[in-house]
Amino acid sequence: MTVFNETTKRDIMQKYDIQLAKFAFDIVQTVVMVGISIYVWLMTNHKANSTRIRDLESRHDSEIDELDTRLTSIETKLDAMPNQQSMNTLHKRINSQSQTLHKIEGELKGIADNNAMILEKLLKN
């Protein structure tokens, strides 16, 4: 009976060792699968974030290019506009022309008055 008991004990122990090994393998497999799932989830989020960041950078770059174009256009227009000194010179020239025009207006009025007097004298005679 001792041989039977030892063989039976050995069979029972081997059976428990196999079950324990299978259980340990299942735990390791579950841990590895959870680890892979977490890794995939993190990489997916990282990829999504990278894509969003790339999209934001692209939009940012296009907006900066548009603003640069607009700024260049404004600078070009400002360069073509007269400065204060040019405006002062233009104002002086306009004032000078205005004075000349008033002088010519006065002379023409005098000529018109003379013509009216000559016409009146000619009509009276």
Rank of each mutant, 00 (worst) to 15 (best):
Q84M: 11
S62F: 01
D61V: 05
M43S: 15
L122Q: 08
S86D: 15
H60K: 14
R54Y: 04
I111V: 13
L119Y: 00
L119W: 00
D68H: 10
K92L: 14
S98R: 06
V40H: 05
A24C: 01
V34K: 14
V32C: 04
I36V: 15
E63K: 13
L101I: 12
N83K: 11
L90C: 04
K77R: 11
A116M: 05
L78R: 03
R54M: 09
A116K: 09
G35R: 02
Q97S: 07
L71P: 00
A24V: 03
K103P: 00
D65L: 12
A80P: 00
N83E: 06
L20M: 13
I111K: 08
N45I: 09
E75V: 06
W41H: 06
R93E: 15
I74D: 02
P82L: 03
G110D: 09
D79P: 01
T72W: 02
K47G: 09
T72K: 14
G110H: 02
A24W: 00
W41Y: 10
T44W: 08
T30N: 08
T30G: 03
Q97L: 15
G110F: 00
E66K: 13
A21V: 01
M33K: 14
K77D: 06
T30K: 10
E107V: 08
N115E: 14
L78N: 05
K103E: 14
H46T: 14
G110V: 01
P82D: 07
S37Q: 04
N88S: 11
Q97N: 10
S96D: 10
W41I: 09
P82N: 07
I118G: 02
H60I: 08
N45Y: 04
Q99Y: 04
L42V: 08
A112N: 09
N88W: 02
S73I: 02
H102K: 11
P82C: 04
K103F: 10
H60R: 13
Q29A: 14
D113V: 06
Q29R: 12
S86T: 11
G110S: 06
V40D: 09
W41R: 07
S96M: 04
K109R: 07
I53H: 07
H102S: 13
D55G: 05
I118W: 00
T44I: 15
N83W: 00
Y39N: 10
A24Y: 00
F25V: 03
S50Y: 02
V34P: 02
L67S: 07
I64F: 05
H102D: 12
N45E: 10
G110T: 03
V28S: 12
R52H: 11
Q29Y: 03
S73C: 01
G106R: 05
S96C: 03
K109N: 12
M33W: 01
K92Y: 04
I104K: 09
T72P: 01
L90W: 00
M43W: 06
E75M: 09
Q84F: 08
M81R: 13
